[in-house]
Simulated scan of single mutants.
Amino acid sequence: MARAGLTAARLTAAAAELADEEGLDKVTLSALARRFGVKDASLYSHVRNVRDLRVRVGLLAAEEMTERIAAAVAGRAGKDALVAFADAYRDYALEHPGRYAATQMRFDPEEVADSAGLRRSVELTHGVLRAYGLAEPDLTDAGRLLRSAFHGYIHLELGGGFGHPRDVRESWARSLDALHVLLENWPTRSGGSER
C-alpha cells in the first residue's frame, strides 16, 4: 500500500479528477485502481465501496464550492450577493462538471452528518435570502427555487441544451435579474406580495 501512497484523501482527489474528466458515472473502484496501478482490493482499506467513494467526491466538491461562494458573497447583500452567489455556483459547476454532479446526489443523513461544507452552504443561502426579508418557511421555499433554477440552467448548459445563438451568459444574467425581482416581491400565502 505504501508504494502507491494510498489514502482516502488521495483516492477522493483522484476520483474527483476522474469525475471531471469522464463523468461521475465513470468513477469506479476499478477505474481508480487502474490510475494508481494497483488491484481493486487495495482500495478497500481506504473506501468501503463505489458509493462511499462518490459520496466522498460529493462532500469534497461541496466544500470547494461553498468556499468559493463564501468568498464571492463576503460583504455583499441583496442583488449583489445573489449574483455573486449564483456566478460562483455556476462557474464551479462549469469548471468541475463531475464534482458538481456528485453534489447533486441524494445523500443519506448519516453520510453527510459531519459535512461542514453542506451546513455552511445552507447558511450562506439563508444569509442571502434573509437580506430579502424572508423567514421560514419561505427561506426553505426560496432556497429550493434558487437551487432548482441554478441547477436546471447549468444542467442544460452543460448538456448543450441551449441551441439559440443568444449568449448563454446574457440569458444567465437576465435570469438572475428576474430572480432578484421575484425575491423582492416574494408572495404571501394569500397570493399577494410580502411588501
Rank of each mutant, 00 (worst) to 15 (best):
A2W: 12
A4Y: 13
G5K: 10
G5M: 08
T7W: 04
R10Q: 07
L11D: 00
L11M: 08
A13H: 13
A14Q: 12
A14S: 12
A15P: 06
A16E: 00
E17L: 03
A19W: 02
L24M: 06
D25L: 10
D25Y: 10
K26Y: 06
K26I: 00
V27A: 01
A31S: 12
L32A: 02
A33Q: 03
R34A: 15
F36S: 01
D40G: 07
L43H: 00
S45N: 11
H46D: 01
N49M: 04
V50Y: 00
V50N: 04
V50L: 00
D52R: 01
D52M: 01
V55N: 02
R56Y: 00
V57M: 00
L59H: 08
L60F: 03
A61E: 04
T66C: 07
T66G: 08
E67Y: 07
I69W: 06
I69G: 03
A70Y: 11
A70C: 07
A70M: 04
A71M: 07
A72Y: 11
K79G: 10
D80Q: 13
A81Q: 07
A81H: 08
L82G: 08
L82Y: 08
L82V: 10
A84M: 05
F85G: 02
F85K: 06
A86Q: 10
D87Y: 08
D87E: 14
A88F: 11
D91V: 14
Y92D: 04
Y92F: 15
A93S: 08
L94C: 04
L94E: 09
E95H: 13
A101H: 09
M105L: 15
R106W: 05
P109L: 08
E111I: 03
E111Y: 02
V112A: 09
A113D: 08
S115I: 09
R120K: 15
S121L: 09
V122I: 14
L124Y: 13
H126D: 15
H126E: 15
G127E: 11
G127A: 09
L129N: 11
A131Y: 06
Y132H: 12
G133N: 12
G133E: 08
L134Q: 11
A135M: 12
E136K: 10
E136N: 13
P137E: 07
D138C: 07
D138S: 14
D138R: 15
D141G: 13
A142N: 11
L146A: 03
A149V: 15
A149C: 12
A149W: 10
Y153T: 06
L156S: 13
E157I: 03
G163F: 05
H164T: 14
P165D: 05
R166V: 15
R166D: 13
V168G: 00
R169L: 04
L176V: 07
D177M: 06
D177W: 12
A178H: 14
L179W: 09
H180Q: 02
V181C: 01
L183R: 05
E184H: 07
P187M: 04
S193E: 09
R195N: 12
